[in-house]
Amino acid sequence: MKAVLIRLRQLSNHLQTCGRFIVMNDDGDVVFQAVSLELPWRGNIRNESCIPAGAYSVSKAVSPKFGEGTFKLHEVSGRSNILIHPGNFTRDIEGCILLGERFSDIDNDKITDVTSSRKTINTLKQLADDFELNIIQI
Rank of each mutant, 00 (worst) to 15 (best):
L98E: 15
Q126S: 14
T70Y: 08
L99M: 06
I45Y: 07
N47I: 09
E48Y: 09
R79P: 01
S63I: 04
I138R: 10
L39Y: 04
Q10R: 15
T70R: 00
Q33V: 13
I93Q: 08
I106N: 06
F32N: 02
F71K: 03
L73S: 04
I111P: 02
Q16A: 09
T123Y: 14
L127G: 01
A55E: 15
M1A: 13
I82S: 01
L133M: 05
N47F: 09
I106D: 00
F21D: 03
I121A: 01
A61H: 12
L11G: 07
I6T: 12
V62K: 11
P52H: 05
N81A: 11
Q33D: 10
P64L: 10
G69A: 13
Q16C: 11
Q10I: 15
R42T: 06
H74A: 11
T90Y: 09
G100C: 02
R42N: 09
F71Y: 14
R7Q: 12
I82G: 03
T112K: 11
I136V: 15
N81K: 09
C18V: 12
V35H: 06
A3V: 04
D107G: 04
C50F: 01
T70Q: 07
D107C: 10
L11Y: 15
L127N: 01
R7D: 05
N108M: 13
R42L: 08
E68V: 12
N13S: 09
P86V: 05
I6L: 14
S63T: 03
F89Q: 14
E94Y: 10
A34S: 12
P52L: 06
D107R: 12
I135T: 00
D129F: 10
F71H: 07
Q10A: 14
N88M: 03
A3I: 02
F66D: 12
F32T: 01
R79S: 01
E68K: 13
G19T: 05
T120W: 04
N122R: 09
P86T: 05
D26I: 02
L124N: 06
D130P: 07
N81E: 12
T120G: 00
R42K: 09
H85I: 00
Q137A: 11
A61E: 02
F21L: 05
R42M: 08
I97P: 00
F131M: 06
I45N: 07
N13C: 04
L98Y: 00
S12Y: 00
F103P: 04
N47W: 06
T112S: 12
L83N: 04
K65Q: 15
V4H: 09
F131P: 02
R102A: 13
L124D: 10
I135V: 12
A53K: 08
I6A: 03
I84H: 07
H74M: 08
G69F: 14
K125W: 11
V114C: 07
T17F: 00
S117A: 04
R91A: 11
N44Q: 08
L37P: 01
V30Y: 05
I136Y: 12
A55M: 13
F32W: 00
A34P: 06
L124V: 08
S49N: 00
F89E: 14
E68L: 11
F66T: 03
I6P: 03
V114K: 09
P40W: 00
V62D: 09
L8E: 15
A128F: 10
F103W: 02
S104R: 15
G95F: 05
R91P: 00
N44D: 08
T90K: 10
M24T: 11
N44I: 07
H74S: 12
D27L: 06
M24H: 09
V35R: 11
C50E: 13
S59E: 13
A3H: 06
E75Q: 14
